[in-house]
């Protein structure tokens, strides 16, 4: 046998051994952190979601789904007339391009989250949109908090909010042996939200407000929860506390709440001045 061929055989054997040893090691050490693929609960996005899984960009797929959730929740459910639709799209475009001062853009689609008209129902697919995101990336903890906050307090569907939070708790519990300080934060926050929703269902407002206040003070608290709490404080005539929350929301720089927070700060300052 020629020497070169012999060397090739030896190298081949070494590479196969190394690959086999690596696979054995992975079987022991590597635990794939995502559940098995299932069909998206939002039927029109099944292909997009499967593509993101098959091409190894689950997180990016979850991000796209997140933006689609915001678009879904930010667009009016009831059809609007052509003139109004034109005005809304023009305002949104201006806002994105920075052509119009943000304070003036009060009618953008994104701000429809906080429109009191939508509170109390609508957006029936909201839970499915949230579940779609967490199917792709169960560790996208912000979605559980944002989704449950919007479902429980904006859309008055506490049971659906609990379904979403339960999924979050299960996702984190699946890897309980890996619990670290990183994991504890979303884990206990989910339980905090569950308790607040249960207090709301029981009509124990004081306890609910106390828990919501704790939730809103966390560094990654969704603005939707802060808005809910600020509105509760304003209705209870606690203008100082409401003003603090709106200032925090404005400081976060979230474009969808920027104009609204400006208006609210002015309004609450006026109310505080009147009271004095």
């Amino acid at each position: 046998m020629p020497k070169v061929l012999k060397t090739c055989y030896i190298i081949s054997a070494v590479t196969i051994l190394a690959i086999s040893a690596s696979i054995l090691f992975f079987q022991k050490e590597f635990r794939y952190p995502f559940p098995a693929v299932k069909l998206s609960p939002v039927s029109e996005h099944i292909i997009l979601d499967l593509t993101s899984v098959l091409s190894g960009v689950r997180r990016l797929g979850a991000d796209i789904a997140w933006v689609q959730l915001l678009q879904y929740y930010g667009s009016p459910e009831k059809p609007v007339d052509k003139e109004k639709e034109y005005e809304l799209s023009l305002d949104t475009t201006r806002h994105i391009l920075g052509l119009k001062p943000k304070e003036e853009s009060g009618n953008g689609h994104a701000e429809n989250h906080y429109n009191p008209q939508i509170a109390g129902g609508g957006y029936t697919g909201f839970l499915n949109y949230c579940l779609r995101i967490v199917d792709l990336d169960p560790y996208f903890s912000y979605v559980y908090l944002y989704g449950s906050g919007a479902l429980a307090w904006n859309l008055n569907r506490g049971d659906e909010a609990l379904v979403l939070l339960k999924r979050g708790i299960e996702s984190m519990e699946r890897y309980k042996e890996n619990i670290t300080s990183d994991l504890h934060r979303p884990y206990w926050r989910f339980n905090l939200y569950v308790s607040a929703i249960i207090y709301r269902k029981r009509g124990e407002s004081e306890k609910m407000i106390s828990l919501l206040d704790t939730a809103a003070r966390q560094p990654e608290a969704p603005n939707v929860v802060k808005v809910i709490l600020a509105n509760i404080y304003q209705n209870a005539k606690k203008y100082g506390a409401a003003l603090e929350l709106w200032k925090e929301i404005r400081q976060s720089g979230d474009p969808s709440y920027f104009a609204k927070s400006g208006d609210k700060i002015k309004e609450l300052n006026a109310l505080l001045t009147q009271r004095q």
Partner: peptide, 20 residues
């Protein structure tokens, strides 16, 4: 890049991935 937020996920397997 897909396991970014998975808690406590960085381990010895990352080094072995390079070898693999």
């Amino acid at each position: 890049k897909d396991f970014w937020d998975v808690p406590n996920f960085l381990g010895r397997w990352v080094a072995v991935s390079f070898i693999y």
